[in-house]
Amino acid sequence: MSLFPTDDPDKVPFAGILPAAPRPFVLGNGEGEKSLVFDQLFTILLTGDETEDQYGAFTMQGRKGDRIPAHLHKAAHEIFYVVDGEISVWMDDAADHHSKTTLVTGDFAYVPAGTVHAFQIHNSTKVFGVGTAGFERFFHAMGQQTDLTEPQGVYVPSFEVMRAAGEKYDTVFMPEFQFRD
């Protein structure tokens, strides 16, 4: 049973890019469902539709920028694997884990559901991510559909769009949260 909407309208504009069923397929370099969120390009490579609601996979590419606001995903687990570049990840589980770690090419981080986290890109960086099935559409709900192959420009969603995406994908934005740096 899916944790996120199975009749998700955020996938409608992307129909036909991925098979939407658990069958073999190949994507070429730069292919996938793409959305610009702030100054980062998210490319969805695999969704819950293809994995029978097990997981989704995506890449995030960006250039040096500010730290994104603290947030947590109530139901989604998320990983960061740095394909190329450097990114700092802050994590706070409200119990005994409080960290800021700078990840470089080849490094990996796991963010369990319910963990407050944020990240900041330090130079041109590409991250491979995997999350709980359905969560990958969060980036479409927040972003603007694009055909870009490299991050260019900036798309800032309105507060209403961010709030609606957060509610739909069980994400809580916490801009006032203070990490222990």
Rank of each mutant, 00 (worst) to 15 (best):
H117R: 14
Q120H: 05
D92I: 12
A95D: 15
V111P: 09
H117Q: 15
D107I: 10
A118E: 11
F119Q: 02
V89T: 11
K100A: 13
T102A: 07
T101A: 04
S99I: 13
K100Y: 05
W90I: 06
A113V: 11
D92N: 10
F108A: 10
A113G: 08
A95S: 10
M91E: 02
A94Q: 14
I87H: 02
S88G: 09
Y110C: 10
S88C: 11
T102S: 08
S99D: 13
A94C: 12
L103F: 07
A118T: 07
D92H: 04
D93F: 09
L103G: 04
S88K: 02
H117F: 15
T115V: 15
H117S: 09
G106T: 14
K100D: 09
A109H: 00
Y110K: 08
T115P: 03
A94K: 03
G106F: 06
Q120Y: 05
A118S: 13
D107C: 13
G106Y: 03
Y110N: 11
V89R: 00
T102M: 04
V89E: 00
T115Q: 08
S88E: 08
I87M: 08
D92W: 02
L103D: 00
L103W: 05
S88I: 12
D96Q: 08
V89I: 14
M91H: 00
M91F: 01
V104Q: 14
T102V: 15
A109D: 04
G114C: 10
V89H: 08
A118W: 13
W90A: 03
T105R: 00
